[in-house]
Write a protein that binds this DNA or RNA. Sequence first.
DNA 1: TCACTATGTGATGGCATACTCACGCATCGG
DNA 2: CCGATGCGTGAGTATGCCATCACATAGTGA
Lengths: 108, 108
Amino acid sequence: MNAEQKQLYKLKADLIAAMGHPIRLAIVEYLSNGEQCVCDITEHLGAERSNVSRHLAVMLKAGLLEYRKDGLKMMYTLRTPCILKFLSCVTEALRQQMQSNARILARL
Amino acid sequence: MNAEQKQLYKLKADLIAAMGHPIRLAIVEYLSNGEQCVCDITEHLGAERSNVSRHLAVMLKAGLLEYRKDGLKMMYTLRTPCILKFLSCVTEALRQQMQSNARILARL
DNA sequence: TCACTATGTGATGGCATACTCACGCATCGG
DNA sequence: CCGATGCGTGAGTATGCCATCACATAGTGA
């Protein structure tokens, strides 16, 4: 593996890691309904506001989100709808995994 | 969000996090060619052997991989082919992101 | 039995992340 | 101008992750 390939893996890994957290995952899913402000996201998650703000910053930096100002509020949106397809892959993988586990358990 | 939903997000996030690392990503891609032993993976990556071993353990625990013993060697395989579809989504998202960045840069 | 190979794992140091609290800044309504 | 609201961010702490070294284990072949 040359340096260029390593760099590419790093980019991909960073993108993935930006979603590898329960709160961030929940935010992405919530944003699939369209643009939302921080206050609504916070209320929906039932999490600490400053913490949500930090997670939003992480995803913003990773390029997953976009935002715009609307008066007092900051409105966040998903940057690439592709991300949702990504998430459906995860759900499917999780389902397959659990079914596989269930089969193993059934043999006990 | 109730506790059950949070648990679900945690499961998904753990699955995602298990891939959110350059080395682990490279391993998954390498394993898409089929079963490989630790020695070959290590050589292909050019990484520290014990480090590779640890990353394999992480993915094993996350349910991404399976392994079997073959003499001295431990052979690892991808558990769910679905993971590859997942990765192609990441690649596509990264491409979209970079194209988007390129458009923004073009306006300078 | 003895060297050698392939692999996993405990210990450790360094670094990044997550969360909370407190505060500051910008904006809006009056 | 003032209070209230929405939001970001510095500081501090706790926790976890990562890479590395050293060592232990298991199988292999002579």
